[in-house]
Measured scan of single mutants.
Amino acid sequence: WVPTKREEKYGVAFYNYDARGADELSLQIGDTVHILETYEGWYRGYTLRKKSKKGIFPASYIHLKE
């Protein structure tokens, strides 16, 4: 896992994603996520609506905010 280059990196989910394991994070369309790390097509972070739950999710489900 590699920390993100920018201190504040955010994105928005444009697909729903159902977590398949305890380390994964479920997403709903429109969720804003804070991205902490990246690795081979995956991000690690949390949604702003539930900051206490961190997990991994596919990068392809996220539109990055500039």
Rank of each mutant, 00 (worst) to 15 (best):
K51S: 11
V12F: 08
W42K: 00
P58M: 05
L27N: 00
A13H: 01
A19Y: 01
K51V: 11
P3S: 06
I35A: 00
L64C: 13
V2W: 08
V33H: 02
Y46S: 05
E40N: 14
W42P: 00
D31C: 07
K65V: 15
E40S: 09
K9R: 14
S52Q: 11
G45S: 06
F14H: 13
K65P: 08
K5S: 14
P58W: 05
Y43M: 08
N16H: 08
F14T: 13
E37S: 08
T32H: 13
S52D: 13
Y15V: 15
Y10V: 08
N16W: 07
A22S: 11
I35W: 01
E8M: 13
G45E: 01
T38W: 11
P58L: 10
A59Q: 09
E7S: 14
Y46F: 09
Y39S: 13
E37D: 08
D31L: 05
D18P: 05
D23F: 09
Y43I: 04
K53G: 06
I29F: 06
L27S: 02
K50E: 15
Y17T: 00
R49P: 13
G11R: 03
H34T: 07
F57W: 03
N16P: 12
L25A: 00
D31K: 01
T38D: 04
T4G: 10
G55H: 05
I35V: 05
K51P: 15
V12T: 08
Y17G: 01
L64D: 03
E66K: 13
L48T: 10
T4K: 07
H63F: 10
W1H: 07
G11V: 04
E37C: 09
K51D: 09
A19K: 04
E37V: 04
I35L: 14
F14V: 15
H63E: 11
G45C: 07
S60K: 15
T4V: 14
S60E: 12
L48S: 09
G30W: 06
G45F: 07
Y10R: 05
D23P: 04
L36F: 07
L48G: 06
G30D: 02
I56W: 15
W42M: 01
E66F: 13
L64R: 04
K9T: 10
Y46R: 04
L25N: 01
K53W: 06
K53Y: 08
L36N: 04
Y46C: 12
T32Y: 15
S52T: 11
I56Y: 10
K54Q: 12
L25F: 01
L48Y: 08
D23N: 11
D18G: 05
K53M: 10
E24T: 03
W1R: 08
L36A: 02
E8Q: 11
L36W: 03
A13N: 00
Y61G: 07
L36Y: 06
E37I: 05
A13Y: 04
